[in-house]
Design a protein around this nucleic acid. Structure first.
Length: 199
DNA sequence: CATAGGATCGCCT
DNA sequence: GGCGATCCTATGT
């Protein structure tokens, strides 16, 4: 089942980030589908979250995407090198987002290896938000795409997330501080990162 | 217009 | 554990 608007539009971004563990991130570009099982995410809790790009209600051409309705892709360039993929959650004008930090490669390993410039898979191949985008072919120019409009035409591009009923028990999901947000002061310590070692 | 810095990665030691 | 790559974005003049 493709995750519907009702999954993304809820107001608890931390819960959504936790529930995204075990879901399958899918992309289709040039008619070629690739996917991976999500095993690490981070929640960014809108205008009250110092670690969020939208902290304090800041708006800019880049962060404007975060104020869109739930189910929109927010992809931005980090360190001039890496595209980082997030899903916007909640309703329009509430800039919540979930960063996908790691996936276990699933469909079309060959193409994903090629994209990552690797010759074989290792445990860490999809571990890291920059690597997630590299494997799936997601680029910062894809920011603003809807994850709810699934292309029926196989030649059409699209990104979406599926529930393939992969069960990850609650006790197997660790809640940890987020990575790389030391500038966020007190908010840097919030347990908004979710990760499982089961997948 | 100029500038500093970033929700990272891979390679080096 | 340290560092350079690399370029967009935000901010300030």
């Amino acid at each position: 089942m493709i995750l519907p608007y009702s999954f993304y539009s809820r107001n608890d971004v931390v819960l959504i980030a936790r529930e995204m563990i075990g879901k399958v991130l899918v992309s289709r570009f040039d008619g070629k589908t690739t996917s991976g099982v999500i095993y690490e995410t981070e929640a960014y809790n809108g205008i009250v979250d110092k670690a969020s790009h939208a902290f304090g209600g800041r708006r800019s051409p880049r962060t404007e995407i975060m104020y869109r309705d739930g189910g929109t892709a927010y992809v931005y360039l980090c360190y001039g090198v890496h595209s980082l993929f997030n899903v916007v959650t909640n309703k329009e004008d509430i800039p919540h987002a979930v960063l996908v930090r790691a996936v276990r490669p699933l469909d079309n390993m060959k193409l994903m290896l090629e994209r990552a410039g690797k010759s074989r898979f290792e445990k860490k191949t999809g571990d890291g938000p920059g690597k997630v985008s590299a494997l799936l072919g997601i680029h910062y120019s894809h920011t603003g795409m809807s994850l709810l409009c699934i292309p029926s035409n196989l030649k059409h591009d699209g990104i979406w997330i599926e529930d393939r009923e992969i069960i990850v028990p609650d006790h197997a999901i660790a809640a940890l501080p987020r990575i790389g947000v030391q500038y966020a002061g007190k908010d840097a310590k919030l347990p908004y990162r979710f990760r499982t070692e089961l997948l």
